[in-house]
Simulated scan of single mutants.
Amino acid sequence: MHSFYVFTIFILGMKVSVLQGQRCPRQETELPRGVDIYESVRYGHYVELECCSRKGGAVKWMKWDKNTNQWQNYSPERDDVFLLESNQILAIQSATFEDTGSYKCKEQNSSASVDLKKFNLHVVACDKLARGPFPVSPLPCAETIAAEKETITLPCTGYFGCGDDGDIRIVMWYVSEDTDDNWKEISEVDDRYTTTKFEEDSGTVVGLNLTIKSVSAVDFRRKFMCLLASPQMIKSQSSTVVTLRNKNRIGEDPMLKSGFDSGEVLIVLAVVSVCLLILTGVLAGLFIQRQMMKSRKSCERKGNHQQWETMIYKSTGDSVQMLP
């Protein structure tokens, strides 16, 4: 926790040091009067309102009070709101919905005060351009390790973005009991399967957790699918298929896992060995025959000297020629 505070202070200090540069250059020309600036920021994000007076004079900030319908002097009362560059910049580190409203900055001089800029700040829950659904963390693993008789939870979470109040946001779990992918709703298959729904960030994130109580052997033969869908969007569907793997059978021989007993495995290995031996013999015979066709040696006895002379024969087409 201490390191988190140090990191936060470091980031804020770095941001302030940047703002102390040339963010508000001294302007000799007069700024337009009655300028309205519209700013939009996502909830919890950083935003700045830059006033920047003409000659770097003293600046005062005001906010419109809806209760009194009057402008009220504004001074930060939260630790995440700052006035920087001699009050030239109003910086909000983490925007809240209470920050929504109208702001204006005034330049103070010896004779009077002058309105410089007016801001209309709107804090939104999310980005209107981001429409899902998109899978987000936490997500299930495609292959989840589990042990029999234990209880496990598979998460399924989607980001749907901003939408109208009537938008439909679907998060569902389905299960298939065969290889043909005949998907059924969880509630129709097994009483041990239960789901829990949750929402975050005003409904922009919707999730559905699947809990499997007392995992049994049948669960390892089934497939589970997490489905995210939104009828408001074209191609707005995302799915993730999950299978369970028995923790106690990890590392078993894959042939044994697929249904072969030890006797069948030995027979298969013996047949393969015999085939390899025959193939090796055939290849060796062909190799020897080819070498003999290229060159061979013969010995013959000459005269009364009983000497042996080696004669080399070379194959030339269909005839054989003896070399001296």
Rank of each mutant, 00 (worst) to 15 (best):
F4S: 12
T8A: 12
V16T: 06
V18Y: 05
R33Y: 01
I37C: 11
K55M: 04
K55Y: 10
A58W: 03
N69V: 00
K104H: 10
S113T: 12
V114S: 12
L116T: 11
N120A: 02
L121V: 08
C126N: 05
K128A: 14
P133S: 04
P138V: 03
P140G: 11
C141P: 06
I145D: 05
D165C: 11
Y174K: 10
E177C: 06
D181I: 02
D181S: 11
K184V: 03
S187L: 12
D191Q: 11
G203F: 00
L208W: 00
T211M: 02
I212S: 04
S214F: 00
V218D: 13
F220H: 02
R222V: 01
F224V: 01
L228I: 04
N248H: 09
R249T: 14
I250S: 05
E252Y: 09
F260E: 02
S262H: 06
L266W: 03
A270N: 06
V271P: 03
V271T: 07
V272D: 01
L276M: 05
I278H: 10
T280H: 13
V282Y: 13
L286M: 08
Q291S: 13
K294V: 08
S298W: 06
S298K: 15
T310H: 07
T316S: 14
S319V: 13
V320Q: 15
Q321N: 13
Q321D: 12
Q321V: 13
